Every structure is written in structure tokens, then in C-alpha cells.
Amino acid sequence: MATSAIHETEHQITVSAEPAAVYAVLADAGTWPAVFPPTVHVELLSHDDHEERIRIWATANGKPKGWTSRREFDRERLRIRFRQEKSSHPVAAMGGEWIVEPGSRGSTRVRLTHDFRAADDDSASVRWITNAVNRNSEAELAALRRAVESPGDRLMTFEDSVTVRGSAAGVYEFLHRADLWHERLTHVAAITVTEETPNLQLMEMETRSRDGSTHTTTSVRVCFPDHLIVYKQLRTPPLLSLHTGRWTVRPDGDRTVVTSAHTVGIAADRVTDVLGAQGTVAQARDLARKALSGNSMLTLNAAKDYAESRVGAGPR
């Protein structure tokens, strides 16, 4: 059987930052969900000074995908080579390299290369992959520039927890079946969940605020039965530039502790549009925390009631 053709791309950008600062962001894949728009979640599988294996979940042309990559570090030359161990259809194989090059007057040029093969060498698949690589590469390089040129942008992280007199499985089931939330949660006006790959969900939700207004968000959720669901909003409320979160379900003796954690960034350029001419980033942070914590507690308490109602009920 003939091997499908290899296709190559290269994208680049110049940033106003020292090469070491740029390389540090690229080397720390665990922070990528907060840096790169397409990246939803990264799981570190193994790591040493020379290479690492990571599991990545990200969007490609708006679709959630997951794959495992091996990365090799060349810190002296400021290069990181990567190769997918198991690709996601329609990609048959993919690899590439981050190349960080010192520029003039403290600037840095970053080059991102890719080489890939499409499944069955299908022309439609080649176009789909090329579009995804181009879109994600441009988004990642622009986000990298923002991250290294504006390191003072602060993220806010907070969490809420409840203790459940019920099983972790019951709590997890409630959280995993988000497609039923519009029936079970008063603040969810409508919801659509698509799960083409098991435990990888694309969710569009219309949330009802206390004043009766609604806003729509789009999220990708990565589910790890029966203990963890991580997510990233691809479409955020107007005040937020970033929203990632996780639902953690932890057995504790004969009880279960369930926690909702959020990491958010405020869209500073939209504050006055939403809050009025006198609105401040501090007010926006306070409003975001209250709204997200309020909705989290509604969901946590509903999950608690659901799990506790199943105790001793037997199979259903």
C-alpha cells in the first residue's frame, strides 16, 4: 500500500520579548489552555529534561479532537520538536517544530512548522487538515504574542465545594449528563450536547441570569469517568476573555466531595460596554465571580440532591 503524501506548512511571527521568555511559554504545555485558544486540556504523561509525552485535547476547525504527542526539547538552540504518536482522523500522521530565534532590539522570531499526512490521501481531508493547521497556527502565534508581551494580564481562579451523602458515581452521572440540565437546573434555559467521540463533548448552553436575560456559551468538555470533567469555553460571556473550569468528584469515606473550579480572564476592553462608562475591571471580576459561583452552587446542590436521592434505591 502506497504511503500518502507529506504536506508541509510554516507560520511565523515576531514578538517584542526575549527568546527565553518565549521558549518558557512553549515548553510549559500545562499552561496552554490559558494561553492558546484552540487548546482545551493537556495531560502530562511523562517528562524529563529532554522529552515528554502529553495528551492534548483541542479544537480543529471547531471540532474537538484528542491525540498523544511526544515532544523533544533542545534548550540550547531554543527548539521543540513534536510528533503525534496516535493522530485523530482525518490526520494519519503529524509532527513539526517550534523554532525560537533571537531578533534585533530584544525581539524574537517564532516559527511554527508542521508536516502531515492525510488518511487515505483524500483531497478533502488534506484541505480540512490544512485549514485546521493554518487557523490554529495563526491563533496560537497571536496568543503567544499576547502572553509574552502583556505578562501582567492576571487570571482569577476560585472554587466551590459541597459534600454529598451519596456515591461519586451518582454525582458524576449528573455532571456528565449535561444534555439533561435544561430539565434539572433552573438557570439553564436550553442546552445541546454533541459527543461524537466518547467522553469528548461539544456543548452549547443558554444560561439564564437573575434579571431574566440570557447569554449563550459554547464549551468543549473532556470527561474522565468517574472523577473529573474539565472544560473550556470557546464562546464566552461578554465580560470574559477566558473561562476554563473543572468538576472534581472525590470519594471521602462514605461521602463524596464535589468541587467546581474556575479560571477566568476579564476582557478589559469590554468592561465599559457591559458595565457602563464608570465600570472597572475590579467590578467586572467581582461580578464574574458571583455569577459563576452562583451557577456552580446551583449545579452542585442539584447534583447533591440527585446523588442522595439514589442512595438505597437500587438499580434503575
Rank of each mutant, 00 (worst) to 15 (best):
Asn134His: 15
Ser88His: 11
Gly170Asn: 02
Ile191Ala: 00
Ser69Cys: 07
Glu51Pro: 01
Phe158Val: 15
Leu234Thr: 15
Gly95Ile: 00
Glu97Trp: 05
Glu97Ile: 08
Ile13Arg: 12
Ser213Asp: 06
Thr3Ile: 15
Ser137Lys: 03
Glu195Cys: 04
Ser167Gln: 04
Asp28Gly: 05
Gly106Tyr: 09
Pro237Tyr: 12
Ala92Asp: 11
Val91Asn: 04
Ser46Ala: 11
Gly314Val: 11
Phe82Val: 03
Ser213Val: 11
Gly314Ser: 08
Asp179Asn: 05
Asp122Pro: 05
Val40Tyr: 07
Asp121Phe: 12
Glu149Val: 14
Trp32Thr: 10
Gly314Gln: 08
Leu144Met: 07
Phe116Ile: 08
Phe224Cys: 03
His11Gln: 00
Glu204Asp: 13
Thr68Glu: 04
Ser104Met: 06
Thr214Met: 09
Thr197Gln: 11
Ala27Ser: 09
Leu292Arg: 04
Pro90Asp: 08
Gly279Trp: 08
Val22Leu: 08
Gly279Glu: 03
Ala189Val: 06
Thr197Glu: 00
Ile56Thr: 02
Val230Asp: 04
Asn301Asp: 00
Asp254Cys: 13
Asn295Phe: 12
Thr3Tyr: 14
Val25Cys: 01
Asp286Met: 15
Ala29Thr: 01
Leu275Asn: 04
Ala169Leu: 06
Ile99Trp: 06
Arg316Val: 13
Arg255Asp: 05
Arg79Trp: 02
Ala119Cys: 14
Tyr231Gly: 14
Ile80His: 07
Thr68Asn: 02
Ser16Ala: 15
Val40Trp: 02
Glu138Asp: 15
Arg105Glu: 05
Ala20Phe: 09
Lys63Cys: 08
Asp28Gln: 03
Ile229Phe: 07
